[in-house]
Amino acid sequence: MFEAKLQQGVIFKKIVDAIKDLVKSVNIDASTSGLSMQAMDSAHVALVSLKLNENGFKDYRCDRPITLGLSIENLSKILKCAGNDDTITLQTDEEEPSSLKFFFENQQASKISEFSLNLMSLDSESLGIPDTDYSSVIQMSSAEFSRICKELSSISETVEIETSKESVKFSVQGDIGAGSITVKNNQSDKDVDRVDLQIDQPVKLTFALRYLNMFNKAVSLSSTVSLNMSEENPLMVEYKIDDLGSLRFYLAPKISD
């Protein structure tokens, strides 16, 4: 028996919205400790890693580990039928399920929707993501980071991110010209202005803005985002989801020819 009930179903809707342009199909692994998912985009440039802890669910039961192979597009179609205030319950009784049941219930418990989504058997290629002590960690407003990426992507396809003890600089060079946006360490009380820099070693890496813009679809999951960088390492962009877990995106940097 597997059953997971989310009090705020809208969070699940937002997660699926955030990853649906990046990955087409995923294996969600359910275990006693919660749900996890890892998937790469078709070009293998970016990787999505989702972890949802059992404690974050209103009800959670998973008697034995199961793998749920899902088409994100089809999952998204079903989740469109859930209201933003609904609870969402995922359920299956089978040991090797061929479908996953969904229950959506509104706050008054006056409307209950039930769907079943056919599952797929997917070859999963799980990569060992090393635990990394990142040499530059930037925590800032997710909306502000999203705005910077969007603005710069009209000038160039790539952005160079360079950290120093005091600031982080986003630089672009394009056909029309060049520019940069520098964000300084700022211990403001207001979330939108606050920028926390933890720089053990400065780094300078270049990334494709197209992917960063896709990651930023997760902006509604968290008011802050953390950018974790080390030389010769993929950028890790993390959105923490309250008590539930985290959605992480990894992006391989541009490398020398």
Binding site: A46, L47, E125, L127, T206, A252, I255
Partner: peptide, 13 residues
Amino acid sequence: MKQGTIKNFFGNS
């Protein structure tokens, strides 16, 4: 510069 891939950095587990 060329685009790196995740596999350039993370190995198979």
